[in-house]
Write a protein that binds this DNA or RNA. Structure first.
Lengths: 228, 228
DNA sequence: TCTACTTACGAACACTGTTCGTGTCAACTG
DNA sequence: CAGTTGACACGAACAGTGTTCGTAAGTAGA
């Protein structure tokens, strides 16, 4: 069994293999943090649809099975991404005098974070309402509303509505960005028969107007203005 | 070539096979309508996630490839579903005196249609803005707003915001329905440390309140009240 | 009767998330 | 120091997904 030459050969091979392993494989063990940052970079550059367990694993030079030791699910990974994204939102100390302004600022930060990682708002809509990092944001928002003298229930429901709107808005914007362009939509709308779509045809330009985030500001203004 | 006996045998077999075919296969050819109604029933009973090309095909006693002769994509099928759903929405003739009431009614119809087909709001968010059936709904809404004396641009943007909200709201409700129950969420929220989440902890009950569609009515009320 | 054309569909491709069993290494224990 | 334990890594595979290709079959027209 123990041929001395054979053994020394195996040792030899092992040592050579160990040379590469020490420098490449064993250098950086897989951690949750590395998974999340890799996934985030992936979403940022290629969109949420391009985020698959296999591609994250490949970016970490391993197979998909290795990820499941650190992350329960793809859903949990999505949740972690939403958390990491939420941590980028800065919460201002409440200033009762300009609470509406501060609230709008937080929602705008959230909007920009969602747009920075295209398509991730779908994960935000699916995320459980017990994510600690998103709860930090709602806590901060609640502080601003309460400082402004808004009743707790009204504050809670308004925050809820605005968060839903921000998610849906950014989701749609992300879709449009990679899909059909505005000109094509406009051209098709102009083809509508005035007989069946009188008002739409008459106001096509206004329907399709709203550069940048005018519609966003309008909608949030509506929500905040409605509060007593 | 033409052996009479052999020929008659083949004919015989063909006729027997034709007996079954005439009654089963050839009875109902595949059409777009049959695909859509089958898919809708499937979404209604099992949710949008259960809607796959393969399962629709199986319900029609065929393979998935057969669907692609009538429907370009899964995306197009989704679009057709949204169209069929939109056709269920009744548009009232504008009555300037009670336009807000009428608008709320249309959005409520839309909400209930979305909830009737759980998860389909995701398709609604992804649907192109040129779907003729959804344009019919927005045309009807536009008519109501304009009859109420609302400026076209304000009307268009408010409709847009409200549609986004309805989609997001129904999507979330559909998720919660099949997922974690309210009690579990409440229990977890009650565990939050008051040191880090003072306002959230203080108003847990109000945050989680809102039976049925109270939050929905509240949000739409906010949007409509914000209009001059 | 023979041809042209639309429809139907079995099989396969390239993906997806996820699990099982095995391997391999590090650190604690005798 | 030797040996065992336990956590981590991962190749291979499973059951799905949307979609395409090439072929078969049936209907309609000449």
């Amino acid at each position: 069994m123990s041929n001395r030459r054979g053994a020394s050969r195996e040792e030899w091979a092992d040592r050579i293999a160990a040379l590469d392993q020490r420098e490449q494989v064993r250098k950086e063990p897989i951690t949750v943090d590395r998974i999340v940052t890799t996934a985030l970079r992936m979403v940022e550059t290629e969109g949420f649809d391009a985020l698959t367990m296999r591609r994250v694993a490949a970016a970490l030079d391993t197979g998909p099975a290795s990820l499941y030791a650190h992350v329960r699910n793809k859903a949990e990974l999505d949740d972690l991404l939403i958390g990491a994204l939420s941590r980028n939102v800065e919460l201002p100390p409440p200033d009762a005098a300009r609470w509406r302004e501060q609230v709008l600022d937080v929602f705008t930060q959230l909007r920009d974070q969602f747009l920075r990682f295209p398509g991730i708002s779908r994960a935000a809509l699916s995320a459980p309402p017990t994510n600690l990092d998103t709860l930090r944001v709602t806590e901060g928002l609640l502080a601003l509303f309460l400082a402004g003298g808004v009743a707790p229930r009204v504050a809670a429901w308004t925050i809820d509505a605005a968060l839903l709107y921000v998610s849906a808005y950014t989701f749609e914007v992300s879709l449009r960005a990679g899909g059909v362009d505005r000109e094509e939509v406009l051209a098709r709308l102009r083809m509508l028969p005035a007989s069946r779509f009188p008002h739409t045809a008459a106001h096509v330009e206004e329907l399709n107007s709203g550069a940048e985030h005018e519609r966003f500001d309008f909608a949030l203004g509506l929500l905040l203005r409605g509060i007593a």
